[in-house]
Design a protein around this nucleic acid. Structure first.
Lengths: 171, 171
DNA sequence: AAATGATTGTTGACTTGTCCACGAGTCTAC
DNA sequence: GTAGACTCGTGGACAAGTCAACAATCATTT
């Protein structure tokens, strides 16, 4: 492991996070981390049968009781409308969720975990909790707190393109 | 924007980053951020013609002069072997890169940006630099430094499954 | 020198993600 | 009450990503 420095080496001095090195290209690094986490997540799920990541993301949202209205669940899961529709269909076919119409808005419906879906959620969640703990164990409490604050800010900055217009008008 | 708190609210007290709330599920948050950054990146690239994100990732690695050997470029770009092969083919067809055999290892080859590829890189890079700066502008220098240190640690933790065995043996 | 194991790139097959059109339904303005 | 704008879900089409088999090549072991 001597070949893999634990922290960015001193060639990257404080302030030198300007993207001039691949390791400081934020979008690049987030993409690579996301891919690795997805592969790790798939390996965990593979030990619990054939459920896939999109399906788990929906089960997780339902299991946490965030909301049951279809559009709210989809938004919380962060999934495209078309993909959500198709993935939900596979969960219904597998008997893991059931839906019921919403009287308040006939375009939408409520989604609930079935007993089987709840059981699968409760079976898988501990392993993903262990993964979560594993990811955080090398970080100090202050680093963890900063990380989540920063992720929230980045999520907002990632939602707009105003920087392009600013760049264009500064020429 | 009042509906979108700038920082995690006080329901998430220090230490409460255990994944019990969707906002503290690290893999989930990284996945959502990565998707948003990809969409933002596609919007930026769309202003420069028809190049796509996988192609840009390769051009960026070549433009930064990290390496030219095919496998090293692929690893640096973080792309699957099959996808890399296909994406490289589209870059060659578009006249943006050229390859030449490597005498030292006849399995591999060197990849170079053509003049046209270099010009495209130089045209696009400022907009993505502006995006990078936009992402970091709401963060303090200390937060930025912590972020990159943490991303590196997470990248390592994301590469193994030892936590599963540890969890199983603790039962 | 030959056998064996590992690496690298291509290709096929499939999964997952994105984009869009459309229809049904809701909301708002008049 | 109606028209127009907008939302929500489905399905089609395509792009992007993953997985694996195979062949050629290199490295290691015998």
């Amino acid at each position: 492991m001597g070949k893999q420095p634990q922290v960015l080496d001193c060639a990257l001095k404080e302030g030198a996070y300007d993207g001039s090195d691949l390791r400081t290209l934020l979008a690049f690094q987030i993409y690579q981390l996301s891919s690795k986490l997805a592969a790790q997540g798939r390996a965990v799920l593979a030990r619990h049968g054939s459920i896939n990541l999109p399906q788990w993301r929906i089960i997780r949202v339902l299991g946490m009781g965030v909301d049951n209205a279809s559009n709210e669940v989809r938004i919380a899961a962060g999934i495209d409308k078309g993909q959500f529709s198709r993935t939900l269909e596979t969960l219904i076919d597998a008997g893991l969720v059931r839906t019921e119409p919403l009287a308040s808005d006939r375009r939408t419906f409520a989604i609930h975990l079935t007993a089987e879906g709840r059981a699968l959620h409760d079976e898988i969640a501990p392993d993903l909790q262990a993964r979560h703990n594993h990811l955080l164990k090398g970080l100090s409490p202050a680093q963890v707190r900063t990380l989540f604050i920063v992720l929230e800010k980045l999520s907002e900055s990632a939602a707009d393109l105003e920087f392009l217009d600013a760049a264009r008008s500064n020429r």
